[in-house]
């Protein structure tokens, strides 16, 4: 493979990195864990003039709780998230999603910033970030802007990020005591598989019973971007989440999704599986709520 025509710069500080993003006139692309970038370079899809290697910017790898929420640095790996006790306690749905990414090697390399940057509708952390009301912080030499995740993606591989910007922080809402979440994924095989359909659910329960006070549901891989299932969300509070209630909610899922057929699955199969995954997720969540 001819690689010599592509250059690489490894900035030592974020300021230097933003400067290069701002000034470099030809095509430049950030390189973090490389698990999407290098695959696409080899396939000939991504051939920038310059790789801007940010892997060494250790300041961008953090998980911490601040006044306005839990802050996650873009260079945080999937393994970091799986192992974080803060996320286990206050963002279980994101931990579940990170666990489902690839296998050990890919989780050790791949980052949350890269998952967002690739902007695949099948990206596993994205539905989890939707139900945790994530806000994406974009920085450039001109300053910072914060974009709610539902406004961040505009299509497969496309986001509102400008050429001179990069993701420097991801802020999520910590779950409350009465809140539980789950991530369910259907892939062609158990490990190392891109989602055919995935769903993240976060529920706020009221009291000890099966009454839900509100919740969010987000599907991946069933539309050009990850989507919220708003009709299903409305139903969450209108009936108890017993088997019958759950089945009613899940049966609406096919109306929410707008999948395509591709090499991984047909549109019809994705629609059916959206219902099945939502039902399975809600049943498992209620079982966990009961057993807690």
């Amino acid at each position: 493979m001819m690689v010599s025509e592509i250059d690489m710069i490894s900035p030592e500080t974020m300021e230097e990195c933003l400067q290069i993003l701002n000034e470099y006139e030809q095509e430049v692309r950030l390189l973090a864990g490389g698990t999407d970038a290098v695959v696409r370079m080899k396939e000939g899809h991504w051939r920038p003039k310059l790789w801007l290697n940010i892997k060494g910017l250790r300041d961008l790898r953090f998980i911490c709780e601040e006044k306005d929420g839990i802050h996650i640095g873009p260079l945080t790996t999937h393994t970091d998230m799986v192992q974080s006790s803060l996320l286990q306690e206050k963002a279980d749905v994101l931990v579940h999603a990170a666990k489902e990414v690839g296998a050990t090697q890919i989780r050790n390399m791949g980052t949350i910033g890269g998952n967002l940057g690739t902007a695949s509708p099948a990206g596993d952390t994205i539905p989890a970030l939707f139900v945790l009301d994530a806000v994406i912080e974009l920085s450039s030499v001109n300053g910072i802007r914060r974009i709610p995740i539902e406004e961040f993606f505009v299509g497969p591989g496309k986001t509102v990020q400008h050429k001179s910007e990069m993701i420097t922080n991801i802020i999520i809402r910590p779950q409350e005591e009465n809140e539980i979440g789950i991530f369910e994924k259907l892939g062609p095989r158990k490990a190392q598989a891109i989602s055919i359909v995935n769903v993240a659910i976060s529920l706020k329960m009221s009291g000890d019973g099966w009454q839900c006070a509100g919740g969010k549901i987000a599907f991946g891989s069933v539309a050009p971007t990850v989507i919220r299932a708003r009709k299903c969300e409305v139903l969450l509070t209108l009936q108890e989440l017993n088997e019958e209630g759950i089945s009613n909610i899940a049966s609406l899922a096919w109306k929410e999704v707008a999948p395509i057929s591709d090499v991984r699955a047909s549109a019809a199969y994705r629609r059916d599986m959206s219902t099945a995954l939502l039902e399975r997720g809600l049943l498992r969540l209620m079982k966990r709520w009961e057993d807690r």
Partner: peptide
């Protein structure tokens, strides 16, 4: 999937 420039 690691580019050698990343392992300095």
């Amino acid at each position: 999937l690691v580019l050698v420039g990343q392992v300095e």
